[in-house]
């Protein structure tokens, strides 16, 4: 494992911890898109179907369980927790996220590394992850004032994606037979989606003002 991959996994882990911290201690999920969280729960469930068929390492297994468990529990909290669910911006979070799933499934059926159930589900999870942040970005744009934790959550997610791109470049040059076109293309698309948010985030940080996205 290289430093970019490890740093990428850690920023991903921190992003989840920031979100859980917000939900557990402040009992609020204001500014967080349930649509995006539901998509992530589906992404991890469909990607980690190999959890019981392929053993890679203890690290890999534990991280998979953390991402599965945390994404499902975040959805549960936002939907069912009697205090947390009241802070959910339901009227603002209107992205029709189910419409994203069908094209991703069709694309996975057409473009995959091998036409097997696990491989098609794996490709589907990558395509869906690439666009899963969209409802969250739309919600951020609608919310006038973005609190620090929400901003940090999206920033950490973006950092995780950028570090994974560096990890792929590093692995491509240091490992033989390391070629994953599906992962790369969908990963780069996903990283580009964050670029716009990053721009405004750094502007507000530089000018030391509260983050506000243009309407």
């Amino acid at each position: 494992m290289n430093i970019f991959r490890l740093a990428g996994d850690m920023t991903h882990l921190f992003s989840v911890l920031v979100l859980l911290l917000k939900i557990h201690t402040i009992k609020s999920c204001a500014g967080i898109s349930l649509k995006t969280q539901e998509l992530y729960a589906i992404v991890f469930t469909t990607r980690y179907l190999d959890l019981f068929t392929t053993y890679i390492s203890l690290y890999n297994t534990i991280m998979k369980l953390i991402f599965l468990g945390s994404s499902i529990s975040i959805v549960w909290y936002m939907r069912h927790h009697k205090v947390v669910r009241r802070s959910y911006d339901k009227d603002q979070d209107t992205f029709r996220h189910y419409l994203l799933m069908l094209p991703c499934l069709l694309l996975a059926l057409l473009i995959n590394e091998k036409f097997t159930f696990l491989e098609v589900m794996w490709a589907f999870s990558l395509y869906l992850e690439a666009v899963a942040i969209l409802p969250q970005l739309v919600l951020l744009q609608r919310t006038r004032n973005i609190d620090n934790l929400t901003g940090q959550y999206v920033l950490l997610l973006g950092a995780y994606r950028a570090l994974y791109v560096l990890n792929w470049i590093y692995r491509y040059f240091t490992e033989e037979n390391y070629v994953h076109w599906i992962t790369w293309v969908s990963g780069i698309v996903q990283t580009l989606l964050y670029a716009d948010f990053f721009y405004y985030y750094f502007q507000s940080w530089k000018n030391n003002v509260k983050l506000q996205l243009p309407a």
């Binding site: 190999d50 890679i56 998979k64 991402f67 994974y164």
Partner: peptide, 10 residues
């Protein structure tokens, strides 16, 4: 996945 090309990323 082929040898050396496992889905070992998260």
């Amino acid at each position: 996945p082929t040898e050396g090309n496992l889905h070992d990323e998260l």
